[in-house]
Design a protein around this nucleic acid. Structure first.
Lengths: 324, 324
DNA sequence: TTGTATGCGTTATCAC
DNA sequence: GTGATAACGCATACAA
């Protein structure tokens, strides 16, 4: 391995001179520069980031911790993070919690061992127990960003889409399409989150709120779920889970219910899945890539000790296709 | 930061004793052990992986380099890699080439700077120029695995699905379903790769090969592509790209062609996309997760200087749904 | 403008 | 069993 020492010797200067020159924290004579450059080229010098990190007690590694990467929802966000981090020459670690089977404590330990410069959690961990885990670590000083987590008892910045507005524009859209009797369908959504949507619905519908229905894994959509929809004479469904929206659309068509004439389907989330569904689903885009980019920026702000917003809210918008 | 030094002082032993005890490369007296353990607990010691890496000149970081992560094809493979690496306590870096806009040389430089322990390339880089880039680096010694790359001029192990067999079982399946006139549809596939499939088809069809059609981005499927299919009186289509298969199925239905009665559609690749398509697509599963796991194992074998297979071929299999 | 010397936290080579 | 001490490659305070 070629080190600064080798370069220094070859260029007949001291290590310090090379080091400072390379970090452009010093101006050197033209002749010195030439010799250093030549030595670097001839010997094939590659800086050692690990040594640098040890000395400076700081890496350029950001960890993204998420349930699984093979899910378009998470991978979109991750790609946004990657894009911004790459621009600033930070590296991106991925930790898939579903695969790793590590406890919260073990993950935090891992982050400290590796001198991670910042952590982005994507929609993970029960609020209290996790925050407690961090508080239990005296001298914890790694920047954190919570992407897609709705909580207030944390000292770290939050980034999430405006779910109230999502509920509002979704409902408004369905009403504008002439759909009166609406249902909000979700799948294991925490009540707290669900309430944000309903608050948005409320703004549009007043007291005439959509009915709320939960989709369960063991349900047969065609035989169990769709009949319930019909029973309530639902005309428009706002499905708060993209994949469920796609499956619902399939079930409706199997039951010979025309989309959007007999029933409109609006999905939350805009990945290829909505696009390839039949019919193509109208959806509320949650700006996942932007969410990722913003999360990365917030981590970098913390690292640089700059000011940052405690809460960043992204504006969702409607992408109209053929299901409403 | 609590270091070995602090622990040593607190436990009244030397740094060396603590270090060797922790790496279980030395047996210590019961009493010493107790004191060390107590010190670690009381002071809250966290080992510093960066310092360890510098000293040992070796990290536990594996880099995965791929075009983009927000693509189920790549993220499935990545998830497989993550699963295996996690088991052996290796960390996973992700580098998205499409986002980073780095040249081959810059990527290789990045890997060396960061003392990456091994690199997995997923379906990337023109064979020759890239291999040359590596050869141009004297003393390059980072293990590499090529996932989904078909080439012979490399010194590194290859992992890929058996495309000949994919062609064979796909064709066989379509024939078994009573489809005689077949088409193989691809989208910008390199001739070399395409030929593997055709070789598989040949095994089943003899000289009566399927016709090959290329799908282009600017094509209107309903007005341009489907009519071509009909013109050739095609009864079964083997689409070598999952997303294209889904779009083709949509186009066929718009043209009121019944799947699979009038035309069978077989897709290559088995992600959720085939599942949520209407109708659910029968497909040839390429075992992406296994591909990732195998890639990770091959990297680890190289790191451990164990023997490994130069070429690992995965066996694709049919997943039957409703499109054939 | 350049050089010397020290230390980041760890492991490894000795000696005791 | 245990302890000094020297590296690993780099950055930096301080000298010159």
């Amino acid at each position: 391995m070629v080190t600064l020492k080798d370069i220094a010797k070859h260029a007949n200067v001291s290590i310090c001179t090379v080091s400072k020159y390379l970090s452009s924290s010093m101006v050197v004579k033209k002749e010195t520069e030439r010799r250093i450059q030549q030595a670097i080229k001839e010997l094939g010098y590659v800086p050692n980031v690990v040594a640098k990190a040890l000395k400076r007690m700081e890496t350029s590694n950001i960890a993204v911790i998420l349930p699984k990467i093979n899910n378009l929802y998470y991978s979109e966000i991750t790609s946004g993070i990657s894009q911004t981090l790459g621009k600033y020459h930070y590296n991106l670690y991925i930790y898939e919690v579903d695969n790793l089977q590590l406890s919260e404590e073990e993950i935090l330990q891992l982050m400290r061992e590796n001198m991670i410069a910042g952590i982005i959690f994507i929609g993970l961990f029960a609020d209290q127990s996790f925050q407690e885990s961090i508080n239990n670590i005296p001298g914890w000083d790694i920047p954190i960003v919570y992407a897609n987590r709705y909580t207030s008892n944390t000292n770290y910045p939050l980034v999430y889409p405006d779910l109230v507005q999502a509920g509002e524009i979704g409902t408004k859209h369905l009403l504008a399409k002439g759909k009166q009797r609406l249902a909000v369908v979700h799948k294991g959504l925490r009540e707290e989150i669900l309430n944000y949507f309903l608050e948005g619905c409320h703004k549009v519908c007043g007291e005439h709120l959509p009915i709320v229905m939960e989709m369960k894994d063991e349900m047969d959509l065609v035989n169990d779920f769709v009949p319930q929809l019909l029973e309530h004479q639902i005309e428009g469904v706002f499905t708060l889970n993209e994949l469920s929206a796609v499956y619902l659309a399939k079930a409706l068509q199997k039951t010979n219910i025309k989309i959007p004439e007999d029933m409109a389907v609006l999905s939350l989330g805009n990945s290829v899945m909505s696009e390839i569904s039949t019919p193509e689903l109208t959806c509320v885009d949650l700006q996942n890539r932007e969410l990722g980019m913003k999360s990365a920026e917030l981590i970098l702000s913390q690292i640089r000790k700059e000011a940052y917003e405690d809460v960043t809210v992204l504006e969702p918008f409607i992408v109209e296709r053929h299901s409403t």
